[in-house]
Design a protein around this nucleic acid. Structure first.
Length: 396
RNA sequence: GGGGGGAUGUCCGAGUGGUUAAAGGAGACGGGCUGUAAACCCGUUGGCUCUGCCUACGCAGGUUCGAAUCCUGCUCCCCCCA
């Protein structure tokens, strides 16, 4: 095991902020002297089971803690999910049932296993209903730790309060619950994105009120999505799921704007190519490294080859899905066939035709060609747009 | 308890009786350019048996030749005063 000092430097190298300054190092030294592992906490939202690259920034950091001999404590926020977080607008989230939460947690755990070490000595999974399903007496005890003024320090609360937007009591309660999690699991360190800074810091205050040692705080920068602008999230559609197929993962990474590349290399801990590498080459190496991380080296090479063939050389992919059309006449109605084959509406298919977005065996179909002979479609590769393909088969 | 404001297409947001499938923007999609980058240009963006028809502006009724626009009731949301 490396020394606590060098570990500290390694762990903070690509972090956004360490709070209080030097606290992590002190914790590491303390653990070393007591010959024990630090308990490193991460809370997760059981409503979003699909882990994407954005989540992996923190998970990867947790892994580094594990590799340094420490213990990760994942907390599934099942209690909070049962309430339904009304954050943001008035759209209250659907309240999840216990079964759904459990299923989501399992999915999350299975996916996290791709990154985290599941060795029980290095890993612990807890559900916060274990301690948050508390009595009114205990709740009042928790609530007593914090004032409204403290909560209004949080920027988004303050802004909303000032501009007269609603803030639900439930939302105000969230940071308290999250903080109590830290008390309950005796966390030494809590990790999170920079958007969690306030909540994690409040955790320290709450720990102090309960007379337990205060956690060190380590925040990671937020990974931008493939649009290079917004935080990566499923709702924005700018995410890359870690379960995404190799080709998709590679292709979506290639769509990343150049400006966002540096932060991706940095935050996803991918070794950057030498200075002066052409942007396209650099991006390809990033894409390849990511596919390799989640699917292995072989899949990464294959994805790269596939990408070059399809998008650089404009060749038809070789694993095009087969689609059977039932036909009883000599001709078929193209909009209806396209709609069925690609899961779009007929109107949309018509639009694609009108705009020259449909190709049969590489040849663009004229907009007025609404009916097409079965002969022309038999065994043909039909393409809509740049990346959707189907191989047609006529069934009589 | 009192007063006021609001609910429009994927999202934001115009529209206060007729030329409104509904301005504008964002996003998305298609085409061009290209490095499936950015930027830029053009086009599309409810559905269908598509020169037409159907469905749509919180829900349910009503007035009218005609309503997203007016009236009634209902649901939900927000703000202010106390």
């Amino acid at each position: 095991m490396k020394s606590a000092a060098s570990n500290s430097a390694h762990l903070t190298r690509n972090a956004a902020e360490e709070m209080p300054a030097g606290e992590l190092k002190r914790k590491l030294l303390l653990a070393e002297s007591e010959n024990r592992a630090l308990r490193v906490k991460l809370g997760l939202d059981p409503t979003a089971p699909d882990i994407h690259l954005g989540h992996t920034v923190v998970l990867q950091k947790l892994r580094e803690f594990q590799d340094a001999g420490h213990k990760v404590v994942l907390i599934v926020g099942d209690q909070t999910a049962r309430v339904g977080d009304p954050s943001g607008r008035s759209e209250t989230r659907p309240v999840l049932t216990g079964a759904e939460i459990l299923a989501n947690a399992q999915t999350y755990e299975a996916q996290a296993a791709l990154i985290l070490d599941q060795d029980p000595a290095r890993y612990e999974l807890r559900f916060n209903s274990e301690w948050l399903d508390m009595s009114m007496d205990d709740l009042l005890g928790l609530v007593r730790t914090t004032t409204v003024a403290q909560l209004l320090e949080r920027e988004d609360f303050a802004n909303r309060y000032k501009s007269g937007e609603p803030i639900s009591i439930l939302e105000l309660l969230y940071p308290l619950m999250q903080g109590y999690d830290s008390v309950a699991v005796q966390s030494d360190v809590e990790l999170g994105g920079t958007d969690q800074t306030f909540n994690i810091l409040l955790g320290r205050d709450i720990q102090r009120h309960y007379g337990v040692p205060e956690q060190a705080v380590l925040t990671m920068p937020i990974l931008p999505g493939i649009d290079g602008v917004d935080k990566m999230s499923k709702t924005k559609g700018n995410e890359i799921a870690i379960t995404a197929a190799p080709d998709e993962m590679f292709g979506r990474t290639m769509r990343l704007p150049d400006e966002a590349m540096e932060s991706w290399f940095h935050l996803l801990a991918v070794a950057a190519p030498p200075q002066g590498t052409a942007p396209r080459e650099a991006k390809a190496s990033l894409a390849k490294a990511l596919v390799e991380r989640f699917h292995g080296e072989e899949a990464a090479s294959a994805a790269e080859a596939q990408f070059n063939s399809q998008f650089v050389a404009h060749e038809v992919p070789d694993d095009v899905e087969l689609f059977s059309i039932a036909a009883d006449g000599e001709q078929v109605h193209l909009p209806s066939v396209l709609a069925e084959a690609f899961g779009i509406s007929r109107s949309e298919a018509r639009r694609l035709l009108e705009q020259g977005g449909v190709k049969v065996d590489g040849a663009q179909i004229a907009p007025e060609a609404l009916d097409i002979s079965c002969e022309a479609l038999e065994g043909a590769i039909v393409q809509i747009g740049r990346r959707r393909f189907k191989k047609f088969k006529i069934v009589r």
